[in-house]
Computed example of a mutant assay.
Amino acid sequence: MKYAVKMPKVLQAVYPKRLWSINTADKVLYLTFDDGPIPEVTPWVMDTLANFNAKATFFCIGDNVRKHPDIFEQLIARGHRVSNHTMHHVKGWKTPLVAYLREVDSCQNLMELEAGQEIHKLFRPPYGQLRSKQAKALQKKGFQVVMWDVLSADFDTALTPEACTKHVIDNAQAGSIVVFHDSKKAWPRLKLALPEVLKYFSEKGFAFKCIP
């Protein structure tokens, strides 16, 4: 396994200005979905969330917003939060600073144009890759860098849906930011894991909210 399902506390301490979880004693989970919107998955995610009266934060790829503006608009209309995941899902470690900032700005401008309103400046770096210079420059622009503390790993084609479900159930707690993906790659695991996670935590008395 090349990634941590539960983000180590030491890593969170090294980058304290990045948002890893929400400090709360309330039974609330913050589900997030990366890489959409796409017609094959995102509408299903919205319908599934609605079955549990759940709201979530969607970190959108700008190019997918451009291709599927109707689905993007549905996310807003249904009370979810739309946020920035760069224009073309670029890797921070391999992208120069100026080019990276251009990717983020292009995504933000496009989302605001399509939404007809300002969009909260929440940003998640694709692959979790972000250089310190990139993070500082984004923070100066008013962006909150949002990471996570629990990874479903639904992107991992070697995993079963049951394993992804277990990742979340075993590690999420009040205030956790949990990562799923509304992507074709994640779909074989997401379609089974997401309803199970929503059902399990709903029965435990949890609510599901957008990142504030």
Score class of each variant (00 low, 15 high):
Ala137Tyr: 06
Phe59Cys: 08
Gln173Pro: 02
Val178Leu: 07
Asp154Met: 03
Asp149Lys: 00
Lys141Cys: 04
Ala186Cys: 13
Tyr15Glu: 06
Gln129Lys: 10
Ile211Ser: 10
Lys27Cys: 05
Thr160Pro: 00
Lys184Gln: 15
Asp156Ile: 01
Pro96Cys: 04
Val28Trp: 04
Thr86Lys: 02
Arg66Lys: 15
Gly142Ile: 01
Lys204Tyr: 11
Asn84Val: 12
Leu49Asp: 06
Asp34Lys: 05
Leu113Asp: 15
Lys17Cys: 09
Tyr127Asp: 05
Tyr3Thr: 13
Tyr127Met: 10
Val14Asp: 08
Lys55Gln: 15
Glu162Cys: 01
Ala174Cys: 13
Ser106His: 12
Gln108Ile: 10
Gln134Leu: 06
Glu118Met: 14
Pro8Leu: 09
Gly128Glu: 06
Arg66His: 14
Val98Glu: 14
Val65Met: 07
Ile211Asn: 08
Cys210Phe: 11
Phe72Lys: 02
Glu103Trp: 01
Ile211Pro: 03
Arg81His: 09
Lys209His: 14
Arg102Met: 09
Pro37Tyr: 07
Leu49Ile: 12
Phe72Trp: 07
Lys204Thr: 11
Ser152Lys: 00
Lys2Arg: 12
Tyr100Ile: 05
Gln139Phe: 00
Trp20Ser: 03
Asn109Ser: 13
Glu196His: 13
Lys94His: 10
Ile169Tyr: 07
Asp63Thr: 14
Ala4Arg: 09
Leu19Lys: 12
Ala163Ile: 11
Trp44Asn: 08
Ala54His: 03
Leu11Ser: 07
Phe155His: 02
Ser83Met: 09
Tyr200Met: 09
Phe206Lys: 12
Pro161Tyr: 10
Ala99Pro: 01
Thr86Leu: 02
Asp149His: 01
Pro16Gly: 03
Leu138Glu: 06
Leu97Glu: 09
Thr32Tyr: 01
Asn84Gln: 05
Tyr3Arg: 12
Gly128Arg: 07
Ala56Thr: 06
Leu29Tyr: 05
Leu29Ile: 08
Met147Asp: 03
Ala99His: 10
His88Phe: 02
Tyr100Phe: 14
Val10Asn: 10
Gln144Arg: 05
Phe59Ser: 05
Val82Gly: 00
Ala137Met: 01
Trp20Ala: 00
Ile61Asp: 07
Pro16Glu: 04
Tyr15Pro: 01
Ser106Tyr: 08
Tyr30Lys: 03
Arg81Pro: 02
Pro69Phe: 03
Cys107Lys: 06
Pro16Ser: 04
Leu198Cys: 10
Gln108Pro: 10
Val98His: 12
Ala4Phe: 15
Asn53Gln: 15
Ile76Ser: 02
Ser83Pro: 04
Asn171Ile: 05
Phe155Lys: 03
Cys164His: 00
Asp70Tyr: 11
Ser132Phe: 13
Lys140Pro: 00
Tyr200Thr: 15
Phe33Val: 02
Lys184Glu: 15
Asp35Phe: 02
Ala163Ser: 09
Ala4Met: 12
Lys185Glu: 15
Asn64Lys: 11
Ala193Leu: 11
Gln144Pro: 02
Arg18Val: 10
Val5Ile: 15
Thr57Asp: 09
Arg78His: 05
Ala137Asp: 03
Gln108Thr: 14
Asn109Pro: 07
Val178Ser: 03
Thr48Gln: 15
Thr24Met: 04
Arg18Asn: 12
Ile38Arg: 03
Glu118Pro: 09
Tyr127Val: 07
Gln117Lys: 15
Glu73Trp: 06
